[in-house]
Design a protein around this nucleic acid. Structure first.
Lengths: 350, 350
DNA sequence: CTGAAAGCGCTTACAG
DNA sequence: CTGAAAGCGCTTACAG
């Protein structure tokens, strides 16, 4: 099958240098401890021989002999390198690549995973997972069972984005949306807003709950009174009525697509954004514009998240599983408020 | 170092199923030839045991035992996943990913390669190259020595883009710029152009020679007479004088950046493009515009190139090195003419 | 039909 | 200080 061009091995180097294969291995790995002390002379001889050959250690053999491989897996449920997904994955992959360079490991993309129902399967008869020392999981939504099984099997992995699809304690690196949401609310409050609407999709993901929770908390403390408006599909039409009935001066939307839809609904109804009503997205806005104004929202450090994920993974890999509980395996990074131009004082129209 | 969570092995499966480890291996690999005939009963028993365990073959061991790994390496001299390089690498990576899915192999990015002078090194003391069955090489310019060594060592690899940095026969997949250039010249000739300028960087890369060669050939046959204008750095100012002195009605530029610079020089000199002088790039134009007009040039199927490269690599991997000479290892794919709006009949101004 | 054995290239105790 | 030996998990002749 494989041509497997016969490569130079330690054995041959040993023959050339007139030493044993063990010695070659020792020299190669700088094993020079209490029990082993190789004189500079032989050491040099071996190095010479290596230099003159094209010798390169066979990573498969190293791996089999118990060393780690410095290979980190990257798993995505969809193709990660397609033009469509680049918008989402691009910054993440970049962060991972940079961190990998620093850590000094290679990246294995599991492109061979069989596709079922349009999604790649992580576990299957011939999972390649174990070729890697550990694995980064990327994707908008992940399979709870997969996460659980990874935890159960004590395979080192880190999810990008906060995860609690399962009761198992999933290592992840995500964004602290609670603080971001709180800060945005504070800013709105400072500007004088007292009555708001929170438009959301009524999802049950961790980040959705984080945001909603903070909105609810605010309602209890009372800075701004929020009406929660759960919408189905993308039908945001009800927001116009709600605006009228509540007299709200500001609308927060769970994500940027939603914010955009809300803006369109307002504009269609002849309601001026942001003068009659302020608008903000509780998500990455990345230069989004609404009626010519930069949308207010968050800036999430995606590259950094991904890089931190790889670093955390590295820590897991070099730590025996029994001590994982000592590690901080659920990290939330700070995002930044992107103030934009769509959050203005109420009654800016008059 | 590595936690190396003890994994289920064939030995344990064997114990569970009450057979020998050899048998497990046989079942796993569907080895059912003339010498081996495993009755459905035992086969089933083994499969059961596997099903109930979390068994997964250790790829390192498989590899060591001589099987291929279904891992293809991807090597780039610069970071491939950075935002800046995405423009160039994006389509290529996408093509590779898609082909990898089809072939059923994983992709190993050699992010661990030590960086020297701002470039990653392919060969170094701990090359991981051999972890992969073969390798795709990506990049604008590659190291001739690297290519030679890969050929010498008979390591399966394929370069993306035509290569002849070395005398060794490098497997590659590239674009047929000769035909594209010829076609563009034919179109210009049909439009009535007789006098032209070819602005180039005087480089010695294969694709540069392909284009220039075709221009020179044209000069010999005589459809259009081209003045070759080699420019240094990006100083295209001489093109204006050359236009005046030759009375050329069309300018071809070696690449799109150059075409853009030439256009700017003309416009600055009050020369109307394309009415006074037509302009075309002998490279990918991808919706580039010159003074509001779509630039004439080529369309190069980058995703397809990359996909073909992976397919060729796969062929190399499964073919013993001795038979590589039977394979067609240097492929040129057809590009397409992107006619655009900057190649018009001469004297369109009058 | 099935298993014991050798071997892939390496590392690491363990004896000299 | 150095080498012979065992072992990592697998495959594949080779004997039963």
């Amino acid at each position: 099958m494989s041509p497997k061009t016969r490569n130079v091995t330690q054995k041959e180097i040993a023959r050339l240098a007139g030493v044993s294969q063990t010695t070659v291995s020792m020299v190669l790995n700088d094993r020079d401890g209490s029990n082993v002390r190789i004189p500079a002379a032989t050491r040099e001889r071996v190095k010479q021989a290596i230099e003159q050959s094209t010798y390169v250690a066979d990573p498969a053999a190293r791996r089999l002999a118990g060393l780690d491989n410095r290979i980190m897996g990257v798993f995505t449920y969809e193709p990660a390198l397609s033009p469509e997904s680049m918008d989402f994955y691009g910054p993440l992959l970049n962060g991972i690549e940079r961190a990998a360079e620093e850590v000094g490991c290679d990246l294995l993309f599991f492109t061979s995973s069989p596709v079922e129902d349009g999604r790649r399967t992580l576990f299957h008869r011939k999972t390649r997972l174990r070729l890697a020392d550990g694995c980064i999981l990327l994707g908008q939504n992940m399979d709870g069972d997969d996460l659980k099984r990874l935890v159960d099997e004590r395979f080192p992995f880190v999810a990008v984005g906060r995860r609690d699809e399962t009761t198992a304690r999933v290592p992840y690196v995500g964004i602290d949306y609670v603080s971001l949401t709180a800060e945005l609310i504070r800013r709105a409050s400072e500007l004088g807003h007292r009555e708001g609407i929170y438009v959301h999709r009524d999802r049950n993901s961790p980040t959705a709950r984080d945001r909603r929770g903070q909105i609810v908390t605010t309602n209890e403390s009372g800075d701004i009174r929020f009406t929660l408006l759960a919408i189905e599909e993308n039908d945001v039409s009800s927001v116009v009525d709600t605006l009228a009935s509540t007299g709200a001066t500001v609308v927060f939307a769970e994500d940027t697509f939603l914010a955009e839809d809300v803006a369109l609904a307002f504009i269609a109804a002849g309601i001026d954004v942001p003068r009659r009503v302020s608008l903000a997205s509780l998500a990455e806005v990345r230069g989004h514009r609404i009626a010519g104004c930069a949308l207010t929202g968050f800036q999430t450090p995606r590259q950094q998240i991904a890089a931190e994920a790889l670093n955390l993974l590295q820590r897991l890999v070099i730590t025996p599983a029994e001590q994982w509980s000592d590690l901080d395996t659920q990290l939330l990074l700070d995002g930044k408020l992107e103030f934009g131009e769509t959050l203005v004082p109420p009654d800016s129209a008059s």
